[in-house]
């Protein structure tokens, strides 16, 4: 802004264009008024923030969906298996594995997987293309999910192991239900409440916390835009994206609350 090519009137015109010549409270009111009509302002490079969002959010939502699917499918299955076979070799092995996953930071896992699968063995493309289709996002999604996956496994395991001795499970076995049905209908359903709580809170964390993962795999999603916004001090971008992330976080928690009633019919919202 203070470069040699800046003519005297130019600075004033730019200030006026971005509304920086008005008092702060007026800037704030204008901004909030615009937000409620769906206008998140313009980044300093001239791109409207909504346009950045329209490009970034679909990518990150796909990435988050992949990650959550991994958490649900792999995390809960491993949790059920280990919880039922507590103390057996399977249990010990999986527990050790979760500890290892927990202790390696996500960005290290990401770099190593990118090196092995992408560069050395050539199974995947090391960088994700701008379209970021689902099949390209499988490996980044797994990396993003890895730490939460370990938590989901441990949570499910504890919960299953605790409920396994409950009276209703003994009743279900005693009345001759097949083992499959006892586990899926009676045991699992009652054990899922803490897990669903965790996954719900995780949706927000995954969407905003994918900064490192998106940087490694060159995914141009929310984390990437936030990182750029912070590095380039583009307030509009950062505030706009964080506002939407908070809304997503609240929505996810609302869905979790509603899911409680599905899992446990005793919980009712009148």
């Amino acid at each position: 802004m203070r470069g040699p090519g800046l003519r005297p009137g130019h600075r004033a015109r730019l200030k006026q264009e971005f509304g920086l010549d008005k008092p702060v409270w007026q800037q704030y009111l204008t901004y909030m008024g615009n937000v409620f009509t769906g206008d998140f302002g313009t980044a300093f490079n001239g791109q409207p923030v909504t346009e950045l969002m329209a490009n970034a959010f679909p990518v990150t939502i796909r990435l988050t969906v992949v990650a959550i699917l991994f958490e649900i499918v792999i995390g809960i299955s491993l949790g059920v298996v280990t919880g039922l076979k507590r103390g057996r070799p399977v249990d010990t092995t999986v527990l050790l594995l979760t500890l290892v996953v927990l202790s390696v930071p996500t960005f290290v896992t990401g770099l190593l997987i990118q090196l092995l699968l992408g560069v050395k063995w050539g199974w995947i493309k090391p960088a994700v293309s701008p379209e970021a289709t689902f099949d390209e996002l499988i490996v980044p999604g797994l990396v993003l999910a890895s730490v939460s996956l370990a938590y989901v496994t441990r949570l499910t395991r504890t919960s299953i192991a605790e409920n396994k001795r409950a009276d209703y499970v003994r009743t279900a076995v005693a009345k001759g239900l097949p083992r499959r049905r006892v586990i899926s209908r009676h045991l699992l359903r009652n054990s899922l409440i803490p897990v669903v709580t965790f996954i719900g809170a995780d949706v927000g964390a995954l969407m905003g916390g994918a900064i490192a993962t998106e940087r490694i795999f060159n995914i141009h999603g929310v984390g990437y835009q936030l990182y750029q916004g912070i590095v380039r001090q583009s307030t509009q971008t950062v505030v706009g994206f964080v506002t939407v992330l908070v809304l997503v976080f609240l929505l996810a928690n609302l869905i979790v609350d509603l899911l409680y009633a599905v899992l446990d019919p005793r919980i009712r919202y009148a």
Partner: peptide, 19 residues
């Protein structure tokens, strides 16, 4: 890759130890 593996390994072992 050795430049990354050694400090990353030290980090992982330390975190694991504290957990």
């Amino acid at each position: 890759p050795h430049m990354l593996l050694w400090p990353a390994g030290a980090l992982a072992i330390t975190v694991l130890a504290f957990i």
